[in-house]
Design a protein around this nucleic acid. Structure first.
Length: 340
DNA sequence: AAAAGTCTCAACCGCCGAGGA
DNA sequence: CTCCTCGGCGGTTGAGACTTT
């Protein structure tokens, strides 16, 4: 939306501002198919009129399949407060300890809620005059925040990737450290065996690395065979009647992390994508919307109504977060998509 | 019911460091 | 060793949603 300062570089002819559902679909489809090894080149190759940064941000902050949705829990908020006390404004590092949350999201929550919350606490504390051990988060806050912030804010790259390989000892080592100190260990990605504790997403996940007890873990990207359908949708061609399956079906019964049959695989892929479409507002596109996006009309007229959404665990996941949804789902792993 | 004020959050920006040529 | 490209980070902005008057 043309926010912030003037463009730093020539971006004439590129779209800016909010992403349209079509752009989202196109980006998802491209990343599912090719991964994102080169953000710079991605928009061109994907046919998006966006800059690479914009694509990256959109993917990381919104489209990634392993993102949690919904409000922050109290535990998460407490974790953020404490981590902020230790790390300062190192949002990416804080985010690395909160699976499914993005640095942007955490930053927003801090700036909108938690900063006030902490200020109030300290005020109370100052007023009461007694430092209660029950709120250790605030104790290191003022000092640690300022010191670490100024100290570490020499740029983003001390973090590199989230809990990346080459990192300073201070930040990422906080993850395991926090786990012991905090009562949020069940929430944080922790010493639990990586394989035994996947990201809490319905289809975890993307080609990301995440901090697991200081160990870099590859999160697997669900592969969705969407090429013919989605690309045709994206290109505005007539729809393929791909909605034969039951949207909620694929996760039933199997309960295993990896599907074994191609049919299940395809069903899982359709299912995941279908729910993503719902999340993006593409599913059951209203008439006025299809008028605004006539290229999608053909596709959506053949699909089941929006009401199918209700009761669907994955829809619930996308709308409210994984806690509300059935964790079981099919994850189809394509090795080539796992690596960054 | 309408207007004004406040809040939320997605998206933009510039800067920095890593890595390759 | 220097330069260039790229990815990533943290700060900032503003449109839209929501609440209050």
């Amino acid at each position: 939306m043309g926010r912030g300062r003037a463009p730093c570089c020539a971006k004439v002819g590129l779209n800016r501002g909010s992403w349209t559902p079509q752009e989202d679909m196109r980006l998802i489809a491209y990343i599912q198919k090719h991964g994102h090894t080169n953000w710079r080149a991605l928009p061109k190759q994907a046919g998006l009129l966006r800059c690479g940064k914009s694509c990256r941000l959109r993917w990381i902050n919104y489209l990634r399949p392993d993102l949690k949705r919904g409000n922050f829990t109290d535990e998460e908020e407490e974790a953020i407060i404490r981590l902020h006390g230790l790390l300062g404004n190192k949002w990416s590092k804080i985010a690395a300890c909160l699976p499914g949350r993005t640095d942007n999201e955490i930053k927003n929550v801090w700036n909108t809620h938690l900063k006030k919350k902490v200020a109030q606490r300290e005020k109370k504390k100052a007023g009461a005059g007694s430092g209660d051990a029950g709120t250790p988060a605030t104790a290191p806050l003022s000092s640690a925040t300022s010191s670490t912030t100024t100290h570490n804010s020499s740029g983003g790259s001390d973090s590199g990737d989230q809990c990346g390989t080459s990192r300073e000892p201070d930040a990422t080592d906080v993850c395991p450290l926090q786990l012991e100190d905090m009562d949020v260990s069940d929430m944080l990605v922790d010493g639990a065996p990586p394989a035994a504790q996947p990201m809490p997403s319905p289809s975890s996940s993307s080609s990301l690395t995440t901090c697991v007890g200081g160990v870099e873990e590859l999160i697997e990207l669900p592969v969705i065979d969407i090429e013919p359908e989605i690309w045709s949708i994206i290109d505005g061609e007539s729809a393929v009647a791909r909605h034969g399956g039951d949207a909620a079906a694929p996760c039933t019964g199997t309960g295993t992390a990896v599907s074994t049959s191609e049919a299940e695989e395809a069903a899982a892929n359709d299912w995941w994508l279908e729910n993503l479409e719902k999340e993006l507002g593409l599913w059951g596109y209203a008439e006025e919307d299809t008028q605004a996006h006539p290229d999608l009309l053909d596709h959506y007229t053949g699909l089941s109504p929006l009401c199918a959404l209700e009761g669907d665990p994955v829809s619930t996941y996308f709308q409210t977060g994984p806690a509300a949804a059935e964790p079981e789902l099919l994850v189809v792993v394509e090795p080539s998509a796992v690596l960054l």
